[in-house]
Design a protein around this nucleic acid. Structure first.
Lengths: 149, 149
DNA sequence: GCCTATCATATGCGCCTGCTTATGAATTGT
DNA sequence: ACAATTCATAAGCAGGCGCATATGATAGGC
């Protein structure tokens, strides 16, 4: 299948500059919105989702559950999230996003989306669709297992 | 152009798991080959290229020129690279890869390539080609400028 | 000739992260 | 009832990284 004469860099090497550039852009945008990257990750993950425990949220966004506490405190202080005791288990705080939090998240997201669209506009429509499809495909795969085989 | 009803995650969020998985795989493979990631990056960058100064090399692979010294020392001690004074400028050491270094690099690269092919095999041939084309396209673009506009 | 800049090198500082340990409270399992 | 586990929380350790500073030697510019 793959052409043996195909010369290409390692995938990680190819992805690295793209990923770093996207992160840098995101940092700039989030700084303008005065919200941290972890804060934005939390709000994004909570947006439109049922309330969840802190541990579940941390796991879902790849955050360290012990270090995310500070971020959650800040978000709560800013009025962007609510922590409520779980009636089913008194150890647990359930997190949900407030209206203000949702507005903050979506405003930042709109700017990030605009920056991304500028980038995607460099592609043909077919390339764009395929690129996004591929990323979606990969998102549903057990990447570590496949790469370990 | 982009469908306003299109729901998708931020590009960085979509790329993050893929990128992390690729890095993790690379780490495992390089550990087996007993070479560090920066060591591999150096060898890859030098492979098949004319000799270059340490500063130029560090810049080209995104390494900190002060911290790459240790890696260069190790590679030199292992016989994988040569440092030679530049006759045109006595401040400069020119780096080149040895035959042993090239073999080491290409052996590791073959394993990385195999792992990547397992992943790319999850795509259709058209998806695979387009995905790689897109990454190549992005590699040639001033990403920061585009994302900043 | 003198000043400025650059190279390789060593090292410091601050930040972030992965991982760990510990605590008190609460829950689960036997 | 008791032991083990889990939740949120705080904090420690080690490693990596971005960035900065400093040094001696060398090169370039005026």
């Amino acid at each position: 299948m793959p052409d043996q004469s195909e010369r290409r860099a390692d995938l990680a090497a190819m992805l690295h500059p793209l990923f770093q550039a996207l992160l840098a852009a995101e940092r700039r945008i989030l700084a303008r919105h005065e919200i941290s990257m972890w804060g934005y990750s939390v709000l994004s993950a909570l947006d439109g989702q049922p309330a969840r425990s802190q541990a579940a949220l941390a796991q879902s966004i790849g955050a360290d559950k012990t270090r995310i506490i500070g971020t959650l405190d800040e978000l709560q202080d800013a009025g962007y999230i609510i922590r409520e005791p779980d009636p089913a288990d008194r150890r647990v705080h359930l997190l949900s996003v407030t209206d203000a939090g949702q507005r903050k998240c979506r405003a930042a997201q709109a700017d990030i989306r605009a920056a991304e669209e500028a980038l995607l506009a460099e592609l043909t429509p077919a390339q764009r669709r395929t690129f996004l499809d591929v990323l979606t495909t990969f998102a549903d795969l057990p990447l570590d297992d496949i790469l370990r085989a």
